[in-house]
Write a protein that binds this DNA or RNA. Structure first.
Lengths: 229, 229
DNA sequence: CGTTCTATTGAAGAGTATCAAGCCAAGTGG
DNA sequence: CCACTTGGCTTGATACTCTTCAATAGAACG
């Protein structure tokens, strides 16, 4: 159901085709010169699916992307959310090993996968890709510690802290781009457990949420750090 | 306590210093020519610790290595076991981000970290390192699915299947190099839960264990695959 | 202003953790 | 060669965290 909806929502568009996007248009010549193409996706649009041929990889220009794996009975694990600047979809083999969808309206830079690009004869981009992989690996390792050994409250604290650092929202409210379901599937919990842990952190005064609950202010970063360990 | 013991057990030795090791000795000239050094570790010896300067990385020659992270209260997450041929200890930054210890008596090839080795101007080794990182990342992603979404029984099934593939023990009994505690800390469970799940798989006829319980025969791979999904 | 979607809250239940013995194999010293 | 010890594995009883199922509340949208 989710996949069907996502597939239906797939709207890949070249930025040049969009009229009201002066900044993007200005950027096109340079981008195209680098052999780079831009695509736009609406929220929940599929970017690629497990098993798809991995002829390209992606860099987030704006918006947020989730990558995830599914078990046959539908259990989902979101391995990462990708924010602007992040590279994702790089594969060692021929096929994509997980699914990728836009969380919000998203613009991506699409890079054709050159055999030499990965090995690294080719300067800047290859270096970026390797660095991005290292960062992915580091995040995955931290996330395994979270999934294997942290309580629900600790998971939420870690998640909010990590997100706030990556989203660069100094002191002010941080918008949560993803739903509670997405957070749950990222943290190895249920929606209800996420909701309860968030509420409890709020009651304890560590965080504060607006009425619509889709943003967070970190009130006591020290205490959150302590929880996240 | 564990760390103290491990540190005490640290026995780095150059292979040339060992008399009864004809094969290793024969290999030395080639290895040394590649700027490579070999070291031997006893079981539970520390290889490096979180925060150590990451001037070298390692390739397992024989034996098994565990890499892990700790929370301040001692909870441990083993992110991976490294078998012969595996590369570990590669870092993006200056410091090691986790701990590494020998699980069994282990021989390692130690590589000095060259700035260019990671970037990839330098052919074979760099390519190996990048490939090793990709494999680490893929395993980490699979492991996040396990930790986030699988039951105890499913985790054990996945673990045993993965290990049997990597250890290449066609049909016969597979020795388990690591303790139940190590398995538990890898799978995000307790020792008791590991023991119970193993016993249950045995009762169900999917696996078979000798009296000392440190080896496994996979009796019904199809059923195990089904569980692992 | 109702409809819909998401988030929250409540009650009950499942699965795993915790605490505590007990068991078994391997090693030790008499 | 055999008690004795030791360390790892298993088993049992109980507790607890998180899940599941169900209902309510609240915001967004037409």
């Amino acid at each position: 159901m989710q996949t069907a909806l996502a597939t239906a929502g797939l709207v890949p568009v070249f930025a040049t085709a969009l009229p009201n996007r002066a900044v993007a248009q200005a950027a096109i010549p340079r981008a195209e010169a680098r052999g780079e193409v831009r695509r736009t996706y609406v929220a929940d649009a599929e970017i690629f699916a497990e098993g798809d041929r991995a002829t390209t990889f992606y860099k987030v220009v704006s918006g947020v992307v989730r990558t995830y794996k599914l078990l046959s009975d539908g259990r989902r694990q979101i391995d990462a959310f990708h924010l602007p600047g992040d590279i994702f979809g790089v594969e060692a083999g021929e096929e994509h090993r997980f699914n990728a969808e836009a969380v919000t309206a998203t613009r991506l830079a699409v890079h054709r996968r050159e055999p030499r690009a990965l090995a690294g004869d080719d300067g800047l981009l290859a270096r970026d890709v390797v660095a991005a992989m290292m960062r992915s690996l580091e995040r995955a390792q931290d996330h395994m510690l979270l999934l294997g050994r942290k309580s629900a409250k600790e998971r939420i604290a870690s998640f909010l802290l990590g997100l706030s650092q990556r989203m660069a929202c100094r002191g002010t409210a941080m918008e949560l781009p993803m739903s509670r379901t997405d957070i749950a599937d990222h943290l190895g919990l249920t929606v209800e457990s996420v909701s309860r842990a968030v509420t409890q952190l709020e009651r304890d005064g560590l965080i504060e949420l607006p009425p619509n609950r889709r943003a967070v202010i970190l009130r006591d970063v020290a205490a959150l750090d302590d929880l996240a360990e």
